[in-house]
């Protein structure tokens, strides 16, 4: 088991190095001189400044050496400088990260809990009336664009009903309390969750239906076990395995999905930071954000891998 986790950690490290390399290549994909690109729209295009950037980033050195510098910088948490915002990229990200974590974390838990519960209910009584209703709702949720449902929720709950605030966290003026924060959090979290609720409903339903058809369920019935108990002890643990895999894969999309949501709800998180960087061609900032979200995903993957070992004893057999 330790060797399994060890192999996973090595793999995660490999992925991180690959991400940083990809980042490095992306910058070089941009048409034009990288130094000018990094200087970006800082408004300072005098040759001396561009030259200083060139030296600071080692852009006058061979490509492989540049990559090495870039890797070393990145792994010492030096993501460069945002000339637009006149600050270190890493400190800007650190400042915004809590808001994003609150948003994506809440959405992750909400979608997982609601989605899996509905999916299990639907799957346990597949083809029943409740199942049909859940499937129809799911189909709709699955097909709604995230940004659009955000606007519609604002339209209904902020503009028409005036129940909930449409933007910000409530802490902007330093006078918020927990309740205000939760009121502000509600719409963005629901917006971000709905699609993933649908994903988990569909997945949980399918896995429950699949597991219910397996032979050991019949064995459990032949022992005289009650239906509810079979569901809890045999169906759910087995049905959770694909959901766990999916959850770690979806985590990455949750992070990038937050870009649109943070933009709509003026949520001061990393996603919006990335969006603004995107709009203003602030590449250091942009790649810093991308790297951060990729790192979060890799981290979550490790967590899910470890969970998987705890749940599924077969894991050591499969490579």
């Amino acid at each position: 088991m330790t060797s399994y986790i060890g192999s996973r950690l090595i793999k995660a490290l490999g992925i991180l190095i690959a991400v940083v390399t990809l980042n490095f290549l992306l910058i070089r994909l941009v048409p034009g001189d990288p130094a000018t690109v990094i200087a970006g729209e800082s408004g300072m295009s005098d040759p001396a400044f561009v030259e200083s950037i060139r030296r600071a980033y080692g852009l006058d050195q061979p490509l492989l050496l540049q990559l090495k510098t870039y890797l070393l910088n990145t792994f010492t948490f030096d993501f460069g400088f945002s000339y637009r915002l006149q600050s270190d990229v890493i400190s800007l990200i650190a400042e915004r990260l809590p808001a994003t974590l609150a948003l994506t974390g809440a959405a992750f838990i909400l979608s997982l809990v609601v989605g899996v519960s509905l999916g299990v209910v639907a799957g346990a009584r597949a083809d029943g009336k409740l199942d049909l209703i859940i499937r129809l709702v799911t189909l709709t949720l699955y097909s709604i664009p995230v940004f659009w449902i955000g606007l519609m929720l604002i339209l209904i709950f902020s503009v028409k009903l005036r129940w909930l605030p449409a933007s910000g966290t409530g802490f902007e003026y330093g006078d918020g309390d927990a309740l205000t924060f939760l009121r502000h959090l509600l719409l963005p979290v629901v917006t971000l969750s709905l699609f993933y609720v649908a994903v988990y409903v569909r997945l949980a339903r399918t896995s429950v239906v699949d597991v219910l058809h397996l032979d050991f369920i019949r064995t459990a019935r032949s022992k005289g076990m009650a239906g509810g108990k079979i569901l809890r002890r045999h169906v759910l643990p087995n049905a959770m395995l694909p959901i766990l895999t999916m959850a770690s894969l979806q985590a990455g999309n949750l992070v990038s999905g937050s870009i649109a949501v943070e933009t709509i709800f003026a949520w001061p998180g990393v996603g919006r930071l990335g969006y603004e960087a995107l709009m203003h061609r602030d590449y250091n900032m942009l790649l810093g954000v991308f790297l951060t979200s990729a790192a979060m995903v890799v981290l979550l993957n490790i967590v899910s891998d470890i969970l998987y070992v705890l749940v599924d004893p077969r894991i050591e057999l499969v490579k």
Partner: peptide, 19 residues
């Protein structure tokens, strides 16, 4: 590796980079 990447994020960056 590509599947671990946040898909939408990567697409946005690519579009921004290519134009």
């Amino acid at each position: 590796f590509l599947q671990t990447m946040p898909g939408l994020g990567l697409a946005l960056v690519l579009v921004a980079v290519i134009g």
